[in-house]
Amino acid sequence: MADIVVDSHVHLGPTLQNHSSPLEFDAVTGKATVAALDEAGIDVGIAFAPLYEGGKFDDADYKLANYAIAQACAEFPDRFVGYARVNPNRRKAAIDEYKHCLDDYKLRGLMLHPDWESFYPTNQSLLWPLAELCAEYKVPMTFHVGYYPKCQPMLFIPLAEAFPTVPIYLKHIGYEYWRDAVIMATRYENVYLETAGASTSGEILAAIRWAGANKVCYGSDLPYCLPAVVIKKIESLPIPDEDKALVLGLNSARLNNIPLRKAAKAVVR
């Protein structure tokens, strides 16, 4: 139904093998992940590293993981948009790694997890240099949102104001703070909501009604979650088909310069 389906939240890479909890898919390689995308009818996955939780693959600075994303993008350029993931606490090393990802790997965005990596989104010394690179390269940032005290949506106010040209995705529609995340998306033109995983269909509908269908982007959290179920939630909502198309893919296609198939082009707002 949708013109293009873009999953704004896909994890892949070798460090998934460190995870003790069961996964829905094998997403260690680009090839395996493409099979999961195909199964759910996803055209393009925005892919970044899973969280590093120790184990056999030693990759606390995400270098191995970013390399895997680069490989997947090189192998399947039509199926993946790759984002870098870094730990901002590494300071210069994190900035260097991100620059390496942009210049050498041609990755097209930055994923950060303030709770897991332990930093405040208000921390200018750690975060602003990375955001400046996003502004310079005209690429989005995407953040895990949800969990006190480092991931409440309101903590992103200074970042959204300081970098008005950088699209900022708030993942999981802010989890337990989904109402606050919706407020952020209504207040800031550059703030978008992403539906990954735990967002309920009621919350997704509320986000679309209050922030607008042009501010909500489908994401699944693959391989922790079945993307087909998240898509089904969005398709089942009592909203116009053109709004579903925006949420399922057109918004993220626009934000990430993903080319549309010919039929879809007329629908873009």
Binding site: Y224, K232, S236
Partner: peptide, 30 residues
């Protein structure tokens, strides 16, 4: 949302009840 199958298997499927939360969730998706 997350990993219904593994949770059900681990606890035992006899302990899991399907529900929809109609009309506040999409029953098709549930």
């Amino acid at each position: 949302m997350y990993r219904l199958g593994p949770f059900a298997k681990r606890l035992g499927v006899r302990r899991i009840l399907f529900g929809t939360n109609t009309p506040f969730a999409a029953p098709e998706a549930e």
